[in-house]
Amino acid sequence: MNSPVFTSLIPVILFIAIGFYVGRRGWIRAASVKDLANLVFMVLTPALLFRTMSTVHIQDLNFGPVGIYFVAFGIVYAATLALQGFNTLGAARALANTFSNTLMIGVPLVGLVFGDAGLVTLFTLISVHSLILLTAATVVFELAAAREHAGQAGGTQQPMWRTVLQAMRNGIVHPVPLPIIAGLLFAQTGLVVPQVVDKPLLLLGQALGPIALLLVGVTLAFTKVGHQFKAAMRIALVKCVVHPVVLAALGWALGLSGLPLAVMIVAASLPVGANVFLFSQRYRVAEEEVTASVAVSTALGLVTMPVVIVVVTRWVVG
Rank of each mutant, 00 (worst) to 15 (best):
A212H: 08
P179T: 10
G209F: 06
G190A: 00
A207S: 12
F222I: 07
V193G: 00
G190V: 06
T219F: 09
G183I: 11
I211Q: 06
G171T: 03
Q206H: 14
L184V: 03
I180A: 09
T219A: 10
P194C: 04
V173A: 06
A221K: 00
G171R: 04
L220T: 02
G205C: 05
V196F: 08
P175V: 10
F222H: 13
A212P: 10
V197H: 02
F186C: 05
R169T: 09
P175S: 07
M168D: 02
P179I: 09
H174D: 08
G209W: 04
A212F: 02
P179R: 03
L214Y: 05
L202P: 05
G209Q: 01
D198V: 01
F222Q: 03
K199C: 01
G183V: 13
T189D: 04
G217Y: 09
V173E: 09
A182Y: 01
P177Y: 07
Q195A: 14
R169I: 14
L213N: 00
K199V: 14
Q206D: 15
L191P: 01
I211K: 08
P210Y: 05
V176W: 07
G171K: 00
A187E: 00
M168Y: 02
F186G: 07
L214H: 06
V192P: 06
L202R: 14
I180H: 07
A207C: 14
V192E: 15
G171S: 12
P210T: 09
V218A: 11
A187D: 08
Q195H: 08
I181Y: 12
Q206S: 14
G205H: 02
G171D: 13
T219G: 12
G171A: 12
V176K: 00
F222V: 06
R169E: 11
L191R: 11
L202G: 01
Q206R: 15
V197W: 05
L215E: 00
D198S: 15
F222W: 15
G183A: 02
V176G: 03
I172V: 15
D198E: 08
P179G: 00
A182P: 10
V192W: 14
L220Q: 07
V218M: 10
N170E: 11
T189W: 03
T219H: 12
P177C: 09
L208Y: 13
G205S: 12
V192S: 15
A182F: 03
V176C: 13
P179K: 04
G217W: 10
M168K: 07
L191Y: 11
L191K: 05
L204V: 01
P175Y: 02
T219S: 12
Q206V: 04
L215S: 11
Q206I: 12
G217M: 11
Q206P: 06
F186W: 04
G190R: 06
D198K: 08
P210H: 11
A212R: 02
L214M: 15
P200S: 13
G183R: 07
K199H: 13
I211E: 03
L203C: 14
F186V: 08
V192R: 14
A221V: 13
G205W: 04
A182E: 08
I211T: 14
A187C: 03
G190I: 09
L201W: 05
R169C: 10
G205I: 01
V216Q: 00
L213Q: 02
P175M: 11
L184N: 00
V218R: 06
Q188T: 12
I211R: 02
G183L: 05
V196A: 13
I172S: 04
V192L: 13
A182L: 12
I211A: 12
D198P: 03
L184H: 04
L203Q: 14
A212E: 09
L178E: 00
T219C: 05
